[in-house]
Design a protein around this nucleic acid. Structure first.
Lengths: 234, 234
DNA sequence: ATTATCTATAGATCTATAGATAATGC
DNA sequence: ATTATCTATAGATCTATAGATAATGC
């Protein structure tokens, strides 16, 4: 299962969603997740709506209750994945002050997706550069981080959009290599990518190296004292 | 019309191709060029074989004399474009000694495609990262240039494949921005991209700047006195 | 009673091929 | 006589929708 955030539908009133609404949201979510799995496994070509509803285990006609075309569904599937990842990055970098480190951390966590969550990485690769022009998900956040880096003087790029394009392109092709030919990458490749991007953005080699190798924030759930941990039940 | 190099078919004997063979090659080439135009104009989705043969002005059934599936044709259309561009880069950088400058020149000439030959740039963008893993066209040449740069000590990257991925990714997303939102790029963007890639590859800021701004080789056809050029027959 | 889901299907493609036609070779 | 191209079409999808069924609300 990919991103499993609740696809809460926008209801005009403030009352709790009814059971019918919840069921509708579940069907919609099943379709989106099916689209994500299909994207990850075989891309968008030669996929019929029937394939999608089969994968979602949903009646064929129900598709049209939620989407009017296949590409509409796939856009949603990609956007949903991007947004979920973006939220994760924002949470994990929240406590970091240095804009260069925020950026570098986001890059490293994203580049690691090929090993940690290959389905998500495959969705990214399948979606290609389309998200660059999209205003949903990662692009606005990355732009924000880059502009902060420029503002603080750590980055010396002239055009934040070009920097964004460079970072996105590097990440995408890194993910592609990482998924297709992982054997040509060594253990340090992710950090080196970040380091070189920082250099590209104008940081001195030494600072770039230092920032790109700082410890990463913990990815797991925060340990809440007195809470039942995941390991206690089996 | 896109790349118009003669798609000389491999004939087992050494005799001159017959008229039948030339006609067959023309039909094939018409199909490939139609594929390139379609790739550039609307991508590969929702394209029927009929669309392609119509665009090529060729009978529907003839498609199957040359290709057995649509994706086979599109792969050929992309590969053909990549190879043509690769040949052009090789010719134009032939006289350059400094490996860093060879690489930088190739990057700049490719990044300029969005303005100079937008149809070709659109084919690149439409094909996405697929060519990264392909052994056809640009990838082997770029790898060769990068390895020369490493050998000569101008580049300090550890993994040439990662460098290739970075360069390819940066170029692709640059082309995408350049095609979709040219207004956010200024006149110096192409050279700046090259400069930053050189920095990324480990060159000192000053050298990177100098190399990325050297004069480019002339793009036009060289004037060969008294020689019959390839283009003289049609 | 209302609304979403499901099943079945008509009509619209789209693919692959058979057979006719046209171009060239000998 | 040979070979590629072209036209026409059978059969295989695939989409969009109508109508039946099931779930929930009141």
């Amino acid at each position: 299962m990919l991103a499993h955030g609740y696809a809460g539908e926008v209801t005009s009133d403030l009352s709790k969603p009814t059971r019918v609404e919840r069921r509708k949201a579940r069907t919609r979510q099943a379709l989106i997740e099916a689209g994500q799995r299909i994207l990850a496994e075989r891309g968008t070509s030669d996929v019929s709506i029937q394939d999608i509803t089969d994968e979602a285990d949903v009646g064929f006609g129900s598709f049209y209750n939620h989407f009017s075309t296949k590409s509409e569904l796939f856009e949603e599937a990609v956007g949903d994945t991007l947004e979920a990842h973006g939220r994760m990055l924002d949470q994990l970098t929240m406590g970091i002050d240095d804009p260069a480190e925020v950026f570098s951390t986001s890059v490293r966590l994203t580049a690691m997706l090929a090993s940690t969550q290959p389905e998500i990485a495959r969705v990214f690769v399948a979606s290609g550069m389309s998200f660059l022009v999209s205003d949903r998900g990662l692009a606005p956040q990355a732009l924000r981080d880059i502009e902060r880096g420029i503002g603080s003087g750590r980055f010396t790029v002239h055009n934040p959009y070009v920097a964004l394009a460079a970072a996105a392109g590097c990440l995408l092709s890194f993910l592609q290599i990482s998924l297709d030919k992982p054997q040509i990458l060594d253990g340090d490749a992710v950090d080196e990518l970040a380091e070189r991007l920082l250099r590209m953005f104008g940081m001195a080699p030494r600072s770039a190296r230092a920032v790109a190798h700082r410890p990463l924030p913990t990815v797991g759930l925060p340990i809440v004292p007195s809470a039942v941990t995941q390991h206690s039940r089996r």
